[in-house]
Design a protein around this nucleic acid. Structure first.
Lengths: 263, 263
DNA sequence: GAGTGGTCTAGACCACTGT
DNA sequence: CAGTGGTCTAGACCACTCC
């Protein structure tokens, strides 16, 4: 026995695919749809909840429900780390020409808006383990978000550095120096740290209410959570960052090159 | 103005964290909770929808709502591809000792149940592009799932091979030969194909009703979707696989090694 | 103010599980 | 059978947006 709301959701999906409802178009009001499908408002809304979660429909309070235009997708590749490392020794003018987000999105620097905040904090259990330091260690917390002008952010990032490791360069402690030309790897370079390798651990979950609001996604749209850890040439963790990205507009791309068989 | 269901959900989250409701324990019946929080049943259920989506609570129809015990997590790393490649030239007995899923989970072969189905299909737009073949090309579709005995599957996989590319070895066309010792790379080896590199593209979304049922997750728990593409030494795509994994029990781990700066 | 979506209610009835 | 969760309804009222 398939429920009514599932059948309605399936019907809506199909109509969107067949472009009976074109992308960007407003759907009929919920009260109209409820009459059309001969169900109660609650049931109609439950069907809409489903297609919203799938990213097919966007709801705007007081305005209407819209067929979601496929958004700019962000493709985040692993090349970015080597690319960033290669740039560390370039001149500042070269470095400031473009950053990794421009790489990911293909947008120009002028189209991107960048926002950063710094604060101090102490390592909790989780961060202490990730950074290999005692609980309570003094950390610098940096929160970032990048967006295309007028659009929702591509991601929310929270990065952690061990305070003691970077305080040799006071400029690194001040958010007004962001965006730092050359990124975190260049920042670390100014205090004598060379990044050797990077690990990224990915999982997925529904967004918290805050995240849904900040990323401008519905509460049902999944987010990808990426924990990036930078290690220096001594194998020590030097930065841990948690990056939250909307699952429906992000594609994480990884390439693994294999060794050839002996001939 | 925070809604009632959000406040109730927040309260439930906190109680679970504080272990007022212990893992595995049954929650009070919905009718009891609804009285306790002084809300209607619908509102109470909406709050439960939220914590279910977060993976904190599991609902069992006719039985009750349970605090979810943390499940076995699967860690899938990129080493697996080189690891699999290295095994292609081993003897069959060596190859059959263990497979990649055992690697990922740390479980023994005896604890894992493997299921495969084969069927023929034709390339749609999406697959044609991914495999670099014309639309309508004859493909072999293979669906897989692997589970720990008595538990939900770790993933649902759908793999596509170009029929013409592999028909030289009829054994590859028959699902009864699964699980094939040594995996897909060994299968391709039997028709003279060496895999050169692998790409993995990851995104996230809520599960379809089918997927939720098969993976035994609630409709609100996110899934990770990984499209893996194998390329041979000529740069030709030789396998495309879509793998769906529960976001709350999967961790995808990638390591990028960077080149050292010149001294 | 008119029209839209968002929250909430009280109550009915159905479906599943265990005894 | 009793007890549980799952679906559905009709209607009230609130919050947001635009004119």
């Amino acid at each position: 026995m398939v429920s009514k709301y599932e059948r309605i959701a399936a019907d809506l999906r199909q109509r969107v695919r067949k472009e009976e409802f074109a992308a960007g178009e407003r759907l009929p009001a919920e009260t109209v749809l409820m009459d059309r499908y001969k169900v109660s408002l609650v049931t109609m809304r439950r069907a809409l909840d489903l297609v919203e979660a799938e990213g097919l429909v966007e709801r705007r309070h007081g305005i209407g429900n819209f067929v979601r235009a496929p958004r700019q997708r962000v493709r985040r590749t692993t090349d970015r780390h080597q690319w960033e490392k290669d740039r560390v020794h370039l001149s500042e003018s070269e470095r400031s020409k473009t950053g990794s987000t421009e790489q990911d999105t293909g947008l120009d620097k002028e189209q991107l808006v960048f926002h950063a905040e710094y604060s101090d904090c102490e390592a909790d259990d989780d961060l202490a383990e990730a950074l290999g330091v005692p609980v309570g260690t003094h950390l610098l917390e940096r929160t970032y978000r990048t967006r295309a002008a007028e659009d929702a952010p591509f991601n929310l990032a929270r990065s952690y550095l061990v305070h003691e490791m970077i305080e040799a360069n006071p400029k690194l402690l001040n958010a007004t120096n962001e965006p730092w030309a050359g990124g975190t790897q260049h920042q670390l370079f100014t205090v004598g740290i060379e990044v050797d390798h990077v690990t990224e651990a990915i999982s997925g979950r529904p967004p918290s209410p805050d995240e849904a609001e900040a990323l401008e996604i519905g509460p049902g749209v999944s987010v990808l959570v990426l924990r990036k850890t930078l290690y220096d040439t001594g194998g020590r963790a030097v930065e841990v960052a948690d990056i939250v990205m909307p699952g429906d507009r992000t594609e994480l791309l990884y390439t693994t090159q294999l060794k050839r068989w002996p001939i």
